[in-house]
Amino acid sequence: MNRQIAFILRRVALTIPTLFVMSIIVFLIIRLVPGDPVRTMLGFRATEENVAELRRQLGLDQSLFDQYVTWMMALLHGDLGKDIVSHANLSELLAQRLPVTFELTGLSMLLAVIVGVPLGVKAAVGGKWINRLTEGFVVFGISVPDFWLGILLVLLFAATLEWLPPSGYMPFSRSPLLNLRYMTLPVLTLAVGEAAYILRTTRSAVTAVMGRPFVTFLRAKGISTSRIIFGHALRNAGPSIATVIGIQVGVLLGGAIIIETMFALPGVGRLVVTGINQRNYPTVQVGVLAIATIFIVVSLITDLIVGWLDPRVMDGEAA
């Protein structure tokens, strides 16, 4: 069997038990929290009849094993359950909310890569002033919390300059320009920190590659620095950069929960927060499941990209 195909199959095979374990963790999150989730959802004035009825509707009157089997079989058949407040189908809610979360995280990561990778390369081969500027950006991006940066951006661009709306959302299909105006501040809020991490990793990886003997040999042959960087250094630094990008996607998904709520974006993160406030047990469970599944799939894609960039990873898997 071709080693590339074998590598892909092994990675996919490892993802399946990971998804299974993740589903168990998500299933147990609320059930193992001290207290009665049904009474929490209904409030202190709930009658015993209401508690028993909701417990029956949610299947909480069964054993944990039976509850998990029932829930997993429903998931495998595409049945995510219903929102207990709006009685809407959760699969339809996710279909409406996921595009917003994908747009937010996708645009944020795209901007972070566009800013972080070139600045990281420049910092690796540049002079003292470039290093100081990029180091300042890294310290700022890593140390400043997303919610605080978001507040500052709203105060500057929405309240003071009045260039951008402070919150809200417009689908891209209805108005691309308004969509970008509404997404600018939340995307900037998330992208700054991610760009800092990518910049730091790119700088370290490119610096390490530029110190290798083969780079000295290429310079001795008279090859320009730009050709060495874009033809060799970035290729060798690619696995490290791709790995940190994949990891930071998970950070973005976590940050999206706060940012979607702050900027009133109708994404999965805001759905989870709303579900927590409403004690909406099935919605919280499905929202967390969706976010965790996305992160696992992104991790799989990252592993495949790293294996493509560095064939030695495939050889190591085979060994």
Rank of each mutant, 00 (worst) to 15 (best):
R56P: 00
G116A: 12
G250Q: 02
P266S: 14
V206M: 12
P213M: 15
W308C: 14
I229Y: 04
M22L: 09
T105G: 06
P311W: 02
V117Y: 03
L152A: 12
R10T: 09
F20R: 06
V125L: 15
T105V: 06
P171S: 11
M1T: 06
L14F: 13
G136V: 04
P266F: 11
G287H: 02
R235I: 04
Y169C: 15
I301M: 06
F20P: 02
D79A: 13
I84C: 10
E92D: 13
N277P: 07
Q96A: 15
F214Y: 15
I114K: 04
A52C: 09
R219P: 05
L93E: 15
L32V: 14
L133D: 01
N2G: 10
L94M: 15
G59C: 04
F102H: 01
L42D: 10
T302Y: 07
M262T: 13
F65Y: 01
T47N: 08
E260A: 14
R279V: 02
V284H: 02
A95S: 13
T261M: 13
V33T: 14
R39H: 12
R181Y: 02
L271N: 10
S167L: 14
R219E: 15
S240Y: 00
G231L: 06
V51K: 08
L75P: 02
R203V: 11
H232V: 08
R270N: 15
V284R: 08
E194I: 11
S175L: 09
V244M: 02
R56Y: 08
M109I: 12
V38Q: 13
V117W: 03
R3S: 08
V251N: 00
G116Y: 03
D315Y: 04
L110G: 03
S173D: 05
G231Q: 05
I259C: 12
I291Y: 00
I151K: 08
Q278W: 09
A195D: 00
F27T: 05
G255D: 00
G141C: 03
L107G: 00
G255V: 04
V251P: 00
L110E: 02
E92C: 08
R31K: 11
L304E: 03
A159R: 05
L271S: 14
R203C: 07
S175E: 00
F295M: 08
G126Y: 02
A124W: 01
F44Y: 15
V100E: 04
A158Y: 09
Q278D: 11
T302F: 08
P99M: 12
V33S: 11
D36V: 09
L60P: 01
L155N: 04
F214W: 13
T101V: 09
L9S: 10
E53I: 13
F7I: 12
S226I: 13
